[in-house]
Design a binder for these strands. Structure first.
Length: 426
RNA sequence: GGAGAGGUAGCGAAGCGGUCAUAACGCGGCGGUCUUGAAAACCGUUUGAGGUCAAACUCACAAGGGUUCGAAUCCCUUCCUCUCCGCCA
């Protein structure tokens, strides 16, 4: 969400930015919101004036009453009534215009970073860097569910019976591996100075509408029946929600947090749930990182964040690459973002395992996350990134660590979480 | 789930229809006086949002409605916290 003052003084920059994002239909919104904003401020100014008059006359009434000057009091009462008559209509207008302005401001995209490549959609995202040699073994790498099943590690049939498509039972060493990866990810981030959090897994609608658009809410969030609660789609929701309407002392920054949570997603829309597998599912678990920092530090943190994910995957011998989101594929709130993709020796291509985003001050402005500085308060910058989401990352893990005999190697860092095992065998 | 008590600045807390709500009083923070330095004492300062060159002014007393010329104060709805009881990992 942009600062309306910025939009007012720099409408051309805002329009240019919209063009870069190929959202031509939104260009007219800029002039429209400027006009509505002017109307709103005019209404507000007039209303403020009337409210001021009412306040001072009401005060006088009190004084008249105390002195027993009944006629003067009655007179003044009539004056206030007249003022209230005009004010009533004005206040309705004021409220409506304010809501309308905000509604438009919410869909005007954030100014993207100069470094963001220009492109229409995800097909024009740009590979930035590869880490590790993408390796294809001599033998054929089976589909990940087949690998898991051969190790008695997954039961999708039972999950369909109890919960439907998009759920899974993990079992035995595969389930243990899943937990081991999360534990390792947690410690990995703690070692890098992040504070570990386990947040609420349900949040109020108030928080939901703060952290996402209505469309996202419809397509992602599960509602608890009879309660004003939603299952979180990612721990970012509760972790950022924690800072809503707060003022953070400058010296407490940066906040570097890493949180674990299960994530629940309806996955309504474009991709939907695949028939067989754990790539896109209704429920998964994720270790996340969140940074709240000063504006001047967010660029540096962005680079540190995606680097953390790359280092994590590399420590498990999984080749990865970073893929930068082009302007058209970048969500409206984001200044810059990239996906971390893992190598799939079976598909012989990279696939998304995490996403790193710098939201600039847009999310903070929307949610009222401010920093208390020496010369006044200002909006913080917020960033988030996936450390690892095990069910999906298991695909990369199993494919890259599979041996021809069907056993799976456990890289050294995970062994202490796997009871010392160096291999999972049939 | 039942019964009671509450929600006011960073914290504690007064105010319970107007003339002490920017908000008393206390603590904490910041600046200063005094001191070789510190403590103590004393003086000053210390909410946020909008608005303005700066003011004036407006808004916010958990949230949302209502009554009133005027609401922190009265009424209604919702949320939250605490204590006790019940239930329960």
């Amino acid at each position: 969400m942009l600062d309306i003052k910025f939009l007012r003084t720099n409408p051309d920059i805002v329009k240019e930015n919209i063009k870069k994002k190929f959202q031509f239909e939104k260009i007219e919104l800029v002039d429209k919101v400027i006009e509505l904003d002017k109307e709103y401020r005019d209404a507000k100014n007039r209303a403020d004036e009337l409210r001021g008059q009412r306040n001072s006359i009401s005060k006088q009434i009190g004084m008249f009453m105390a002195k027993g000057q009944k006629d003067d009091a009655e007179n003044a009462k009539q004056q206030v009534k007249d003022i209230n008559g005009e004010l009533l209509a004005l206040e309705v207008k004021e409220t409506e215009l304010e809501a309308e302005v905000r509604k438009i401001m919410l869909v005007i995209p954030n100014i993207i970073d100069d470094s963001v490549p220009i492109g229409k959609d995800d097909s024009e995202n740009v590979e930035i860097e590869k880490f590790g040699e993408p390796f294809v073994p001599d033998f054929e790498v089976p589909y990940h569910v087949d690998i898991m099943e051969s190790l008695n590690g997954v039961d999708l049939d039972s999950a369909r019976k109890t919960s439907g498509n998009g759920f899974y039972y993990l079992s035995g060493d595969i389930a243990r591996l899943h937990s081991a990866i999360l534990s390792y990810a947690r410690d990995f981030m703690i070692d890098r100075g992040f504070t570990y959090y386990i947040p609420p897994f349900m949040i109020r609608s108030e928080v939901v509408t703060g952290v996402m658009s209505f469309a996202e809410m419809e397509n992602m969030m599960y509602k608890i029946e009879g309660e004003d609660l939603y299952l979180i789609g990612t721990s970012e929701h509760s972790m950022i929600g924690k800072f809503i309407d707060s003022i953070i002392p400058e010296e407490e920054l940066p906040k570097t947090l890493t949180s674990y949570s299960p994530c629940f997603r309806k996955e309504v829309g474009a991709h939907g749930i695949e028939e067989r597998g754990v790539y896109r599912i209704h429920q998964f678990e994720k270790q996340e990182m969140i940074v709240v920092c000063k504006p001047e530090d967010s660029k540096a943190w962005y680079d540190k964040l995606w680097q953390n994910s790359v280092d994590f995957f590399r420590s498990l011998d999984i080749p990865v690459r970073t893929l930068e989101c082009c302007s058209g594929d970048l969500a409206d709130l984001k200044v810059k973002s990239c996906d971390v993709e893992a190598w799939s020796p079976r598909q012989k291509k990279y696939f998304e395992v995490g996403s790193c985003s710098n939201l600039g001050d847009a999310q903070a402005r929307r949610l009222g996350i401010r920093i208390k500085g020496k010369d006044g308060n200002y909006f913080a910058h917020t960033l988030n990134n996936t450390v690892v989401a095990p069910p999906r990352m298991l695909i990369a893990f199993l494919e890259n660590n599979l041996n021809e005999d069907g056993s799976v190697n456990i890289p050294e860092p995970l062994r202490m979480y796997m009871g010392g095992k160096s291999k999972i065998v049939k």
